[in-house]
Write a protein that binds this DNA or RNA. Structure first.
Lengths: 182, 182
DNA sequence: GTCCGCATGTAACTTGTTACATGATTTA
DNA sequence: TAAATCATGTAACAAGTTACATGCGGAC
């Protein structure tokens, strides 16, 4: 149960409504933590009951009212506590890995095409991340704490995507040979 | 819902009981797909109802009987079908990423220590994978289809772990600076 | 006049986790 | 005599997904 904490971080970086958070989860934060709006609303309500966030209803004209959430001192304390907790290893789930091993029994061609699509997807994402890096962090040596945390996470994303692209290339080669023998 | 297919792959590689599969999921297959025994039993039963696997009760002396499962032709066909299906991007959940951004608001020291532990964990795992590589795949150029699929997945694991180790090193540096300013 | 964006939600479902239960045999 | 291994399972719960509902305003 860490969506709670992901939301706390997001709200500490900038208060916002559930809707607004959902959009952020489609972009920046969503690069390393995903959530749908239903989940977000549910967790926000629970955190409000726990006193970790407080909501202020902001009336708007020409738009529905919104509830802007912000982190309370209790929420900030919870975040501090949680940081110190050990991270248990997250469950691994590499569908492509399963498929590769499945392809040993046939249909390597279909998988090779799929892997090629995945490679393109990851390459695209890598490109996006590198653009963000260039645009937002041209001089990474002097950054404030918030910015350097964001930069670090971005660097992680870049590493992951690079790894995927390389692996897909390797996989395509192996699958092509497998294909020849099927 | 891909535990089904992970189990089909595992059973095609070698038939076995639920218990035996659970142990495999703690080792080889578990490196890229995790599952507990409860989940495995549940899914096996469902797949039997669907006709994807069939079970044979094997009486044993000095041990409880076991049900050895194997993949039926219908199960094999399902696997072929599934391979060709596009892999939708798996939800990203990087707790460490969230924590790094949380650490911008305090407690960077606790996180740095935790990241160091993570680095060690990943380094250990990397070492394990590299040992397996050396032991089981000394000459990767001539492998049968099953072995080359296994090798490819292992290579993926090695890449991922290397990436993590590097990232953790980077993170420790950044957190140390953050710490100095908190 | 239809679709998109803003804004919040309910309900039903699937998947995954945790705790517990049983019972024999081998190992320390 | 306590523990670990083999072997299968139930029950309760937590987390995440999908589908649906509402309603206004602006853009095309």
């Amino acid at each position: 149960m860490a969506l709670d904490h992901a939301l706390l971080v997001a709200l500490r970086e900038r208060p916002g409504s559930g809707y607004e958070l959902a959009r952020r989860f489609d972009r920046s934060i969503g690069f390393f933590w995903t959530a749908t709006h239903q989940q977000i609303y549910r967790v926000l309500r629970r955190m409000q009951e726990l006193g970790w966030v407080r909501a202020e209803v902001v009336p708007q004209d020409a738009r529905p009212d919104k509830k802007v959430y912000e982190v309370t001192p209790a929420g900030a304390a919870e975040l501090q506590r949680w940081i110190a907790e050990p991270v248990e290893p997250e469950p691994v789930r590499l569908a492509l890995g399963v498929k590769v091993r499945a392809a040993a029994f046939g249909n390597a061609k279909a998988l090779r095409e799929e892997v090629a699509r995945q490679r393109d997807r990851h390459a695209q994402r890598l490109d996006l991340f590198q653009q963000i890096e260039k645009r937002d962090f041209p001089d990474p040596r002097r950054l404030g704490p918030q910015a350097s945390a964001q930069y670090l996470v971005l660097r992680g994303g870049i590493m992951v995507e690079k790894g995927w692209v390389d692996w897909c290339e390797e996989a395509i080669g192996v699958l092509r040979e497998m294909e020849a023998g099927q």
